[in-house]
């Protein structure tokens, strides 16, 4: 406990850095998954190819990727951009399938009716299909958020510091308290991100909240399983 108090400045600094390293890959991976997910649904071939690439990308071990990226991107070895790009690749690899499935799950009757009342293709995508895919996309973002927050720690091995620094340092010094600080801190960030995502979902998609009256029906209609409560 005294160690935590004594090192609070460093913990806070690395915690904040952890947050800053996590957010861009989650946002970029999700954003990129929207056009690519839509493309994946367009043709049978593009679906097979894109989803396979996504699966393979996710299989690349993170540490070699961090080490390899500087030579591919022309960045310095300690540049945080390497970690950001690598984590964006992983986020995209996970989100691609989630977004493709989310967009495919939108009720065909609703899109048909939107067309019938005069939605053009572009407007229908942004105004009807994407919002209705929202709950399933959000479920994917929650997974990606947790996975990214955890993967950021690996960056400490190549000198891009986050709370992961404390695992490494604590391990080298045989100092369990420091390791615990790293683990608990990472979990706290992941949980806070998750709560913020759920809250954002409630605010942006009030229609998806199961109501007392028709909750079950809504949830099934949206293709989302009701959350255990």
């Amino acid at each position: 406990m005294t160690w935590i108090v004594a090192n609070w400045d460093q913990i806070a600094r690395y915690g904040l850095q952890h947050v800053w390293l996590s957010v861009p890959p989650i946002v970029a991976g999700t954003a990129l998954s929207i056009p690519l997910g839509q493309l994946a649904n367009r043709y049978r071939l593009s679906r097979g190819v894109l989803l396979s690439i996504g699966g393979i990308l996710y299989a690349i071990p993170s540490l070699p990727l961090f080490v390899l990226l500087p030579s591919l991107l022309g960045t310095r070895i300690l540049d945080p951009l390497n970690v950001e790009v690598a984590l964006t690749i992983y986020a995209l690899a996970l989100m691609l399938r989630a977004t493709a499935d989310a967009l495919a799950s939108v009720d065909g009757q609703v899109t048909l009716s939107a067309t019938a009342v005069g939605y053009g293709g572009w407007r229908r995508f942004w105004g009807v299909e994407l919002p209705l895919a929202g709950p399933v996309i959000l479920a994917g973002v929650r997974v990606v958020s947790a996975s990214t927050v955890s993967l950021v720690t690996v960056g400490s091995l190549i000198g891009v510091n986050s709370l992961g620094f404390f695992f490494l340092d604590g391990y080298q010094r045989y100092f369990p308290t420091e390791i615990w600080v790293g683990i608990v801190g990472t979990v706290v960030i992941a949980v806070v991100f998750d709560l913020l995502l759920v809250l954002a979902g409630r605010l942006l998609m009030p229609w998806a909240r199961p109501s007392r009256r028709a909750g079950r029906a809504t949830a099934t209609l949206l293709g989302v399983e009701a959350e255990p409560s």
């Binding site: 005069g118 998806a208 209609l221």
Partner: peptide, 20 residues
């Protein structure tokens, strides 16, 4: 698209937008 906006359309199961 313009033609459809000038003609009313009502379908089975209402076809309403669930998020509006």
């Amino acid at each position: 698209v313009a033609l459809r906006r000038s003609i009313g359309y009502v379908m089975q199961n209402s076809g309403l937008l669930p998020h509006r």
